[in-house]
Nucleic acid binder design. Structure first.
Lengths: 307, 307
DNA sequence: CCAAAAGTGTTAGGGTTACACCCATGT
DNA sequence: ACATGGGTGTAACCCTAACACTTTTGG
């Protein structure tokens, strides 16, 4: 069985940069590759897109298959299309980044060779994944100015210093404790919480919250703008040094490819260590966020976090 | 001649959202489609990616072929991958946005069925291009907070009110004239200019300026971070309603496809009206920007434009 | 001549920043 | 006991936002 085209087509794959926060450091989730190319190296979860799924669907599926994570919030980083980024054949990868709460991860069931690495201590990555990682970090830094994104990385209840450490980890700067707390509180999206909030089920999904937020607020928006909230796509142009502009790939490397995956075929021993062990930290007043206010937050005022 | 793969591959195309500013309104450049599908409708310049070029290279080539524009600044919006976005076959499109100065356009030579449309009066677009346009607008609004992007849309010399109108057009808000001018001037990136500056050749390219900016400033940056400046990729996840998740495309629609293009084949009558006629406006003190300061600007302080 | 746009400063108020000491907890 | 982190308030300063009249230009 084979598929023919009049002109050569690249393969399209997705990759997920998964960020997690353990109360101390920002971590990313990597998978050890079991097959060539780059066998034994670490890479982002991801795989080839099926012909009948969107890139996002593909990314969710691959992430679920490879790590057991079922993720709510997922943002596209953009397409990476260096000609020689995959030695097998021409592969264009659409990358996403994803924020997981430590609690989402606790049921790390399907985990294979997945491991968390602190963002400051990432091993050499396969393909152009180190490039993608830098994109993801700079994107995360940008996004945090427009949305209180950090919360997606925390459990339902968290201390102010956890929140501060998260912001410091993402932005790479230091804040004054009192000023940080004051500014956070005066956004109105926080409420004090008890320990028990930690166990609360995620009442309604973030997609739902976001949809509500949208309809609640913005003035001159048309029906069609709904997509803006979700399907937004943003990126700078990719100017990787394109040293070999005239490589011609044949339609030959397909035998190495599996539509179902290229990482999924890896080692079967499930390593349930797919969670950034929550570092306890000192006791402190607990906060959670007011979903109503959080939902209205972004659109009502153009608040950005700048400390 | 045909290319075969073990698994179905989507086609990959690029689209360019070209923004231009005529001193009054923000405009986008569209091309009338001469072939089905969507024959007679307007669409962004773009076309299919060759197997040996990056998405950005492809976008530049297509833009040059279809509109005669050779563009400096080009930012990736992300990949659009709805399953049914192209009726011919599965096509994943990588979209870019581009800012052109009116002067860059004056030599609109190769122009075909290209026309500028004010952003408030855009006709119905082919494919999912209206969706892409909304992405582009919201992206532009976001980006303007981090970089003085507006300048790429103006000639070398411009009046303060042109600049203000540009910001107002992009952000959709109104500013107080005096406050706007004060804030702009105190950034230090402006200098007063004479009329003659308008004719100056673009001394060195923006890529060069950006490269200089990079090396000049930021502290703890590693060599690898160079790419961050250019190849950055950013986007929210694309959640178009994916109503038909199980459509299977055959490898049949290729006869309609041309690797070289699908828009390029259109009407041949060159319409040199490929420029937003610069609306004159009243006379006023002219400004240009200090490339040195502009280059250092973003990284030195995290200045964002908020009026 | 008239209409539209350019040019020009000041002030009040809000927000940001900088800063130090005591207390509680855990080791 | 000691060290680490939690808890708390104020004052100076900068930046923002609001505001009106005169002059110039173009038609």
């Amino acid at each position: 069985m084979s598929y023919s085209y009049q002109y050569p087509h690249p393969a399209v794959a997705t990759d997920c940069v998964v960020f997690g926060f353990d109360g101390k450091d920002l971590n990313i989730l990597l998978i050890e590759r079991g097959l060539d190319p780059y066998k034994g190296m670490w890479a982002f979860p991801g795989g080839f897109m099926k012909i009948d799924e969107t890139a996002e669907t593909c990314a969710r599926r691959e992430l679920s298959e490879e790590t057991g994570l079922d993720i709510q919030v997922m943002k596209q980083l953009g397409a990476f299309s260096s000609v020689q980024r995959d030695p097998r054949e021409r592969v264009v990868s659409i990358a996403f980044y994803v924020l997981v709460q430590p609690s989402e991860v606790s049921g790390g069931d399907d985990a294979r060779q997945a491991r968390w690495f602190p963002i400051d201590d990432v091993p050499q990555l396969a393909f152009d994944h180190d490039f993608i990682l830098r994109k993801a970090m700079s994107q995360l830094r940008k996004d945090i100015y427009f949305e209180p994104i950090g919360f997606e990385l925390l459990n339902n209840a968290f201390t102010m210093s956890e929140l501060q450490r998260l912001y410091e980890a993402i932005l790479g700067v230091h804040f004054d404790r009192r000023n940080f707390e004051r500014k956070m509180l005066q956004t109105g999206i926080l409420q004090t919480a008890t320990e028990s909030v930690d166990d609360l089920p995620a009442s309604h999904s973030w997609e739902q919250v976001k949809a509500n937020r949208f309809f609640g607020s913005h003035r001159e928006m048309r029906r069609k703008d709904i997509n803006d909230l979700f399907g937004s796509s943003d990126s700078s142009s990719q100017t990787v040094q394109d040293t070999s502009p005239h490589i011609h790939f044949q339609a030959l490397s397909d035998e190495q490819l599996s539509l179902t995956d290229d990482c999924q075929l890896e080692a079967e021993e499930a390593s349930p260590e797919v969670l950034p062990k929550r570092k306890p930290g000192r006791k402190g007043r607990l906060f959670s966020f007011d979903k109503e206010k959080y939902a209205r937050f972004k659109h009502d005022n153009n608040f950005r976090f700048e400390f």
